[in-house]
Design a protein around this nucleic acid. Structure first.
Lengths: 252, 252
DNA sequence: AGGCGCTTGTGAAGGCGTGCACAAATCGCG
DNA sequence: CGCGATTTGTGCACGCCTTCACAAGCGCCT
């Protein structure tokens, strides 16, 4: 459902000299989307004192099928030991490397309405390796406000600051009407990844990744299932494991 | 638990679904996930004054392939006119019916930290047919606070209120440690759909739908693409991308 | 009335992802 | 030192989803 594709076409950029590091084996997108979940589960296990974990144990903690987990991990390489399981610390290190979490990436946040405020203070970002380094808003009454130790700047400084701070990821939490303009500025400033909370489609050049999170859409999907369940009134579910497995992160 | 009568609203929409309250022809999950996006695009088009729209136009507005859009809509029935396109108002009505948005569903929100505050005030919910009717938190210092016209109640009232208000959807915005307990209470109170913002896996009985939104995971996925893109370009510094990129070589 | 252009709806093909089932590999123990 | 218990890694089959390509249908214009 990713609206914008990045330039991952086989026909690669011409002029790749120097042997062109073939970076990663093409990890399936579905696998990539699950790696963060495995990582979280591994951290929990590690803090609980586990040195190793079996695919069965880890998959249960991450809420997925164990075969799927093994296949996912096999794409990263062989970091398990047959008969024993996976070394928790090693696997954490590997996944963090693949996800690029060993390099702290600067994140900026644009739009400090209700949602923006919450994102600015969201513990989950900092605790998992992301640091918001700048806040922007178009509303003059918000500029200058201090949130979580950062001063809100005017959006017209966005381009300059993004370049200065070498910001790689931009988070858009503005109203839909402003989102495309913000995205354009971000792209001009060299930002190549955008997390968009505004309910609209963003148009960006190839090579820029956009992920969209629309909270209302999530509710609407649940609403559908409510509707469906209500119209079935008296039928047993019959998808217990499937229901649990349905807990998927947004995007897909 | 007296379920809300599903009686289709008067002014029934065309099509012969009126006869029996048929469950829907199994809509593919992927289609369901896109319907809200189509709906949003249709509303925009309608406000812009369009009466009809072609699959090409609508798919562009929704950011998807036009063939995919046509197939998705064909699953709902034939509501387009060849040579002309789709009637905007009719299609809006159809999709809202399928998603069950014609019935206002009561939503409760548990956990009023940063994120919970933002969700309580999020315009996107109300504007798209969802009404938050109750707020809960375990922190006594938050109980009694008024947010967006609602008083925060103590979580121990959750079960009772959820039944009283006939709440169908629960939103969990608590820390991970509390999420499972909250989910259990919600399920006991008859809630059959949960939107979980806590970074953890929820275990629920079959028949209950859980959707998970993890904001940090979205960033991690973007981080991966950043990492990949960075390793495809000229490498600054001596990062040993080659060794790390080749899994088999890393072993031992 | 008839033809022409436009658009929908869909059959078919291909790709991707999932899950089963099992061989290969490792450890612990007698 | 060999054997059994355990667990990984993966070949394979199946089903879902996407995409192409095109026939069928509709309105408009002459």
């Amino acid at each position: 459902m990713s609206q914008q594709r990045h330039g991952s076409t086989p026909g690669n950029a011409p002029g790749d000299r120097a042997g062109s590091v073939t970076a990663f084996p093409d990890l399936p997108e579905a696998t990539i989307a699950r790696l963060p979940e495995y990582l979280r589960a591994l951290h929990n296990l590690g803090e609980a004192g586990a040195d190793t974990v079996s695919s069965e144990g880890l998959s249960a903690a991450a809420g997925v099928n164990s075969a799927k987990l093994r296949k996912d991990l096999s794409h990263l390489g062989s970091y398990g030991t047959r008969g024993v399981g996976y070394d928790v610390a090693l696997l954490i290190e590997q996944i963090e490397y693949v996800l690029g979490l060993d390099q702290r990436r600067a994140v900026c946040l644009v739009g400090l309405g209700n949602l923006g405020h919450a994102l600015a203070g969201y513990d989950g970002f900092a605790s998992r390796g992301f640091k918001i380094v700048a806040l922007f808003d178009a509303d003059a009454s918000k500029v200058g406000e201090e949130i979580q130790g950062l001063i809100v700047r005017h959006i017209e400084d966005l381009g300059r600051v993004a370049v200065e701070e070498n910001i790689a990821i931009g988070v858009i939490a503005t109203p839909a009407g402003a989102a495309q303009a913000v995205a354009d500025v971000l792209v001009d400033a060299g930002v190549t990844s955008i997390l968009n909370f505004a309910p609209c489609v963003l148009s960006v050049p190839s090579g820029v990744d956009v992920r969209k999170v629309d909270l209302a859409i999530e509710l609407q999907i649940l609403s559908f299932h409510e509707h469906r369940k209500a119209s079935l009134t008296a039928l047993p579910g019959g998808r217990s494991a499937a229901a649990a497995g349905n807990q998927e992160a947004v995007g897909s």
